[in-house]
Design a protein around this nucleic acid. Structure first.
Lengths: 150, 150
DNA sequence: TGATACCCTAGCGCGGAGGTAGGTTTTCCC
DNA sequence: GGGAAAACCTACCTCCGCGCTAGGGTATCA
């Protein structure tokens, strides 16, 4: 297993918000009920989405959450990163402040000492990020006949 | 973080075995010393590699491990799967006994109920597996001047 | 016969995942 | 103005798997 339920639940919330479409804010309680997810826990996740600039909130009665941008302009890379933190397939690989990837195993002085497995994890990371960037929120929103709109 | 150190260490062991090349079995203690990894822990990992048919062992004095096949014929998908178990980006997705992917969230009776996020995780999984299959052990083995062969 | 190495089972400490609890603040509607 | 509805914030709690360690047993060589 690689992504936690943070990513799973969070993506579901985003899909649900995209479905409701309008300018009317959607209360979290409604989403929690629809997807049968724990409300209190969703609050933590949606806080991350908000800090990531993916979602906006309206407080008070008749409040709730809305997408900050149209679904076509939201990539799943943004969503997953907001929820899980920066995407790395393995602990020793992280992104340097410049875009490049760093392997903590080759930090030592010897420049000749190249980590042989870095190639693998770099490739894996790239393929994950690529498909997350290619997949937009709008791709996940289908017509699914919403059973009952209470 | 997505793969544990099981994958990290295990891949390193495989690379080390590929480097030593020959028909001479390599004792695990040597690999542990070279890579500064805990021997007792490596024993657990290499057991998985053996059960996965990737490595063969010789017991007793002058024993050790060898690759079961030449490095060009070993994909990283096999290695990672042996170490980590079946590759799934998220808990609710698993592979059915037939190759297809199953989402535990849509098990219920209604056939109309399609999980909207399944598309995403299916894509992610596919891209990971693809690059793991494409990358072979031989790709990771470079000339790295081994400092001192004791 | 001893040293060397693989092999197996058990257990343990810690951190993070996956929540729960309870309060505070903002906003709408009557 | 006074609820009620919702977002928001902080603190906590439990459980499980990761990353080991420990201590044996067993095969094989010199």
């Amino acid at each position: 297993m690689m992504f936690s339920t943070k990513a799973e639940y969070g993506v579901r919330v985003m899909v649900e918000l995209a479905r409701q479409g309008g300018d009317e804010p959607v209360p979290l309680a409604e989403i929690a009920a629809n997807d049968e997810l724990p409300l209190a826990y969703l609050e933590h996740l949606v806080a991350r989405l908000r800090k990531g600039g993916l979602v906006e909130s309206r407080r008070g009665a008749r409040g709730g959450y809305l997408l900050a941008r149209p679904p076509e302009e939201i990539t799943m890379a943004e969503v997953v990163e907001a929820l899980e933190g920066s995407i790395a397939p393995i602990e020793c690989i992280s992104q340097a402040p410049g875009g490049g990837l760093v392997c903590s195993r080759e930090a030592e002085g010897d420049a000749a000492q190249v980590c042989p497995t870095k190639l693998l994890w770099t490739r894996v990371r790239a393929s994950i990020v690529d498909t997350l960037v290619e997949t937009r929120l709008s791709d996940l929103v289908q017509a699914k006949p919403r059973a009952a709109v209470a």
